[in-house]
Design a protein around this nucleic acid. Structure first.
Length: 703
DNA sequence: CGGCCGTACTG
DNA sequence: CAGTACG
DNA sequence: GCCG
């Protein structure tokens, strides 16, 4: 006992020396170093990668390349940890006691229940300072990782002292999931950590305490650190941690993901889970997550075409929880049409009061969505859910992302921070599962589910491959299954079609966002060439540019002519404009071209004179009669479009990029049986009006 | 339990 | 046809 | 994922 104590003091003294000598270290020191240490250690245990090939040479070659590529958003790092939901967080109240009993074998002392003490002063917000008197040292002990940062803040909020340096006063070392026991010892230069004085716990420990509202037994196995072997016990090896979350199969359809591939135990592996560069992940979706990169590229460069949004937007406060009064009131300026029963199908009668049935208020397109959540009290939650949605999107889960985005939309509109699942579940589009996640987020600051999934090496490889234009989920999975791990592998060995080869070749370019200003330049250049061929041709800059984005994933242009029919326009574009632009050296390649017989879209790549960066560019050819519908389609965003289209279908109509049709016959599962009769295609505003959707400026269509 | 947007181009 | 893409 |  006494000896232990003495020993500890010695060690501590050594730290203090250490820190004194090298304080540069205490701020975000390690990750790099620890990582590399970790890698050394792992090296050997890396063996059983299910995927063959793994030419180790390409491995290294690539991981370099990966870093250059715009890629795995750094935000992915934020989440931590691996296990599938700790039962604790799911149903704390019920399990609390039983759970602690379960583990009594270790350190009996710990189950100190909520300190009833604490001064009345802090009763205010959360439960009174749960962690009062405790001194937490985190490992790594910095705020670099968003997930950890959140945990630290949370711990402090609950009264813990966050120790900047390791010292004798530390009561708990809270260790990131990515770290193992040896790393702690090495970093702290200890031979062992005296368990009597200091609890070494897994990163989820604080969250569990919070959710139990008590200081739970820190000695429980689920808080063991990787590589920690309980003293006198046999049980060798790493604690198997009932980890390995099994990803739910994507959809009913998509079922299993090669179990051997993806659910392979992780206990690390993966070459370098660490410093991923931010960089936006372009691909499909536009403006990534407003929540995170909120700061925006800022100012300047706006000028261009359409007016940019203004910081208007007020939160609808008239929101109620009641199970029924869920539809927000469209407090909104323009047609404040709420009310009344829908009478006839007087669709075309725009002028008069548009009648909007109540159920319709639920549609996303009925709201002004600016896609911002800066000032939402739920911003944190939203950001994480957004990542989940993105994750499921990439994984080709068809429907979860939709559910997530609906939930996000309601959170965005909710004026009050939602912390408990009970509260959450009362909100529209938030069910039991999402409610639980929301609670988890607010208590733990992260979703382990996401983290663990993202840490799967195979998943990361898949993520990478999916960023190659032309490679989707099916192809990506095949490539992963074939053992390819790097872009270099793909380039040299994989069987790719023409577009995929181009996508690979220009991986970096295509995954780099295009500054608003440059979008304008491409657009102007095309417009100029077009005017040169015929004065009547008009070019509109669409996509997220029209929605006011500071940068876009690609360049979307509508090409139209006031009097020409589609056929003539198409021939002009295919036979003259495109070749001309190729000749100028502006267009670099075609990825999907309309035949001169029919079709309306042209996809390819363009490059400004003097530049060598290829941009994805899309043309949509539109006859004047369809311009309105095309504007809606090409302005998006995708969610807004789906919402409008679904709404139309619920009204027996059909909306596509060419127009709004009525009297569409649909069979089972809304299957289209009839084309329907064209109602409106030319005028964007009329289409809104006919559908009973209040006019939404482009920047209000960010759902 | 079935539905969750509607389309265009590639191979 | 499935796959990928577009908003 | 959620909803009817």
């Amino acid at each position: 006992m006494a000896t232990e104590d003495a020993a500890l003091k010695v060690k501590v003294a050594r730290f203090e020396e250490l820190y004194a000598l090298d304080d540069s270290q205490d701020d975000e020191p390690d990750e790099g170093l620890l990582q590399s240490m970790a890698m050394l250690k792992r090296k050997r245990s890396e063996k059983s990668e299910p995927l063959a090939q793994t030419s180790s040479s390409s491995m290294t070659a690539i991981s370099k390349r990966d870093r250059d590529a715009p890629e795995i958003p750094a935000k992915l790092q934020k989440l931590s940890r691996t296990t599938s939901a700790p039962p604790s967080l799911i149903s704390p109240h019920k399990t609390a006691s039983s759970r602690q009993l379960r583990r009594t074998s270790t350190l009996p002392k710990s189950v100190v229940t909520t300190t009833p003490t604490s001064d009345p002063a802090d009763v205010a917000p959360k439960p009174a300072k749960l962690f009062s008197g405790l001194h937490f040292y985190f490992f790594p002990n910095n705020l670099k990782n968003p997930g950890r940062k959140f945990r630290i803040q949370k711990a402090e909020e609950y009264g813990a002292k966050w120790e900047q340096a390791f010292s004798a006063t530390v009561t708990h070392i809270v260790v990131d999931r990515s770290m193992n026991y040896d790393q702690i010892l090495q970093y702290l230069r200890l031979d062992a950590i005296p368990q009597q004085n200091i609890h070494v716990v897994d990163e989820r420990y604080p969250a569990d305490c919070i959710s139990f509202r008590s200081i739970v037994d820190a000695g429980q196995r689920q808080y063991y650190i990787k590589g920690y072997k309980p003293q006198q016990v046999s049980e060798p090896t790493v604690i198997p941690r009932a980890d390995s979350l099994q990803l739910k199969p994507a959809g009913r359809a998509v079922q299993t993901r090669e179990p051997q591939t993806l659910s392979q135990r992780t206990t690390t592996t993966l070459s370098d889970p660490s410093p991923v560069k931010p960089a936006s992940m372009a691909t499909t979706v536009e403006d990534p997550s407003p929540g995170k990169r909120a700061l925006e590229p800022s100012d300047s460069s706006l000028s261009a075409g359409w007016e940019r949004p203004g910081p208007r937007e007020q939160i609808v406060l008239s929101y109620c929880f009641g199970t029924d009064s869920r539809q927000l009131i469209d407090d909104d300026d323009d047609q404040g049409t709420t009310s009344t029963a829908t009478t006839g199908t007087n669709l075309l009668d725009l002028g008069s009061s548009t009648v909007v049935p109540k159920w319709q208020q639920r549609f996303q397109c009925m709201q002004q969505n600016t896609g911002k959540n800066e000032d939402s009290p739920n911003a944190e939650t939203i950001a994480l859910l957004q990542e989940m949605a993105e994750y499921y999107t990439q994984i080709k889960d068809e429907w979860r992302p939709i559910a997530y985005r609906k939930a996000i939309a309601t959170l965005r509109k909710h004026p009050v921070k939602v912390t408990t699942k009970e509260a959450a579940e009362k909100l529209p589009f938030i069910g039991e599962r999402l409610a639980a996640k929301i609670e988890e987020i607010t208590f733990a600051g992260f979703l382990q589910r996401l983290q663990s999934a993202r840490e799967e090496p195979a998943d990361q490889v898949l993520q990478l491959f999916l960023k190659v234009y032309g490679i989707g989920y099916a192809k990506g999975m095949r490539l992963v299954a074939q053992g390819y791990k790097t872009l270099e592998d793909l380039r040299t060995k994989a069987d790719l079609d023409q577009n995929q080869k181009i996508g690979l070749e220009h991986f970096d370019d295509f995954n780099t966002r295009v500054p608003r200003l440059e979008v304008k330049q491409h657009s102007d250049l095309v417009a100029k060439a077009a005017k040169n061929l015929n004065e009547g041709i008009q070019v509109y800059t669409m996509g997220s540019y029209r929605r006011g984005a500071e940068s876009t994933g690609d360049i979307d242009l509508v090409i139209t002519h006031a009097n020409w029919p589609m056929t003539r326009l198409r021939v002009m574009v295919i036979d003259s404009l495109v070749p001309q632009l190729f000749k100028q050296g502006f267009l670099k390649c075609a990825l999907a071209a309309t035949s001169r017989q029919d079709g309306s879209k042209w996809h390819g790549a363009s490059c400004l004179p003097g530049s060598n960066v290829w941009r994805r560019i899309d043309f949509l050819l539109v006859p004047a009669e369809e311009l309105g519908a095309a504007l809606i389609y090409f302005t998006g965003n995708d969610i807004f479009n789906r919402s409008m289209r679904l709404l139309a279908s619920k009204k027996g109509m059909r909306l596509n990029q060419r127009g709004l049709y009525k009297d569409v016959m649909r069979g089972k599962s809304r299957e289209k049986l009839t084309e329907g009769e064209l109602v409106e295609g030319r005028d964007e505003k009329k289409i809104f009006a006919i559908l009973g959707v209040p006019w939404r400026e482009p920047w209000e269509r960010i759902c």
